[in-house]
């Protein structure tokens, strides 16, 4: 049995169709931006960080050897009973050692966080693919449905006199979106028979 449609404004449906198109576009852009940011970040973790900390280790070694030389030179400045404290050199050497230790510890830390970043990125990609499916499969189905609603309403508007109860949506049309095209022909038949009755 057919249910009666309750649409007071075709423009409202058209406006909603436009809103869905805007949402689809915005959602696409958001997903693509997220993907870009994720690629950039994972690239930074994978390539930039290991190189950065390796360079840092090399720099610390250079600093250490430099301060060792300076400390040695300082100690050599002993004159008579005067023994230089070489405080600055000792302090700098100590700092270079600590920096080296820190940089060496960063190598496994970077590996650990790169793995975590990969894990998170995989989880994200799982969700994002569902979202993409929604954008590229479900939304077009919704748009097709809305388009069809507008088409039917407009078709009925052309056929029926004002004040008559329009029925552009038989119950069959409320089934699967894939059936949308099939129900279109049902409506066309309904339309045809109603027109014949009126004649």
């Amino acid at each position: 049995m057919a249910e009666s449609a309750n649409v007071r404004s075709i423009d409202a449906v058209k406006n909603f169709h436009a809103a869905v198109v805007r949402f689809q576009e915005e959602a696409r852009l958001s997903i693509s931006s997220l993907e870009m940011q994720l690629l950039r970040f994972v690239g930074w973790m994978e390539r930039d960080r290991p190189t950065f900390w390796k360079r840092e280790i090399e720099m610390c070694y250079r600093e250490m050897s430099e301060w060792r030389v300076r400390l040695h030179q300082c100690k050599m400045r002993k004159m008579g009973d005067f023994k230089p404290t070489c405080f600055e050199e000792k302090k700098a050497l100590e700092k270079a050692k600590k920096d080296l230790e820190h940089a060496q510890k960063q190598i496994p830390i970077v590996k650990h966080w790169t793995n975590s970043a990969h894990h998170e990125a995989n989880e994200y990609h799982g969700r994002a693919s569902q979202m993409t499916q929604m954008i590229e499969r479900d939304i077009p189905m919704l748009l097709a449905m809305l388009h069809q609603v507008v088409d039917r309403l407009e078709a009925y508007g052309n056929v029926q006199a004002p004040g008559q109860v329009a029925n552009p949506f038989p119950t069959a049309a409320a089934s699967q979106a894939e059936d949308v095209r099939a129900t279109e022909s049902t409506v066309a038949k309904d339309l045809q028979s109603e027109t014949e009755v009126e004649q």
Binding site: A12, V13, F169, A173, A174
Partner: peptide, 9 residues
């Protein structure tokens, strides 16, 4: 839209 359209569809 719902204010203007309320049916099974």
């Amino acid at each position: 839209t719902k204010e203007e359209w309320s049916d099974s569809v």
